[in-house]
Amino acid sequence: MTLLTTVFAAVICTVIWYKGAPKSEMKVGVLCWMYWGASLMWLVDGIFEYAELHAEYFTPAPTDMLNDFYLGLSVVALGLVIWLIILLVKDPKGVIKAALFRKKN
């Protein structure tokens, strides 16, 4: 469920990035890399788990599934927070700078 949640986040971010490309004013690319990196790593985790549990891997207990989904959402939220910090620090649109400095007449 964590893998699935991250893959969906990665796909959505990639579509948003592609729509805005080649301009990257919102730095959505950062989110794409982060979510795809995590998705690949969780895919490996999933393969190892499948090798251990076989078909049982696809029929998790509802509580496990809910907990994994909760974890997936938390991971997506953490990714968004990291992206927001990078966006505000890099400030590609100069919004923060404009808020801090006022032009002299």
Binding site: V30, M34, W36, G37, G79
Partner: peptide, 11 residues
């Protein structure tokens, strides 16, 4: 770098 750092951070 971005794939590795991003994935490692979330993991």
């Amino acid at each position: 770098n971005k794939l590795l750092w991003g994935g490692s951070a979330l993991l």
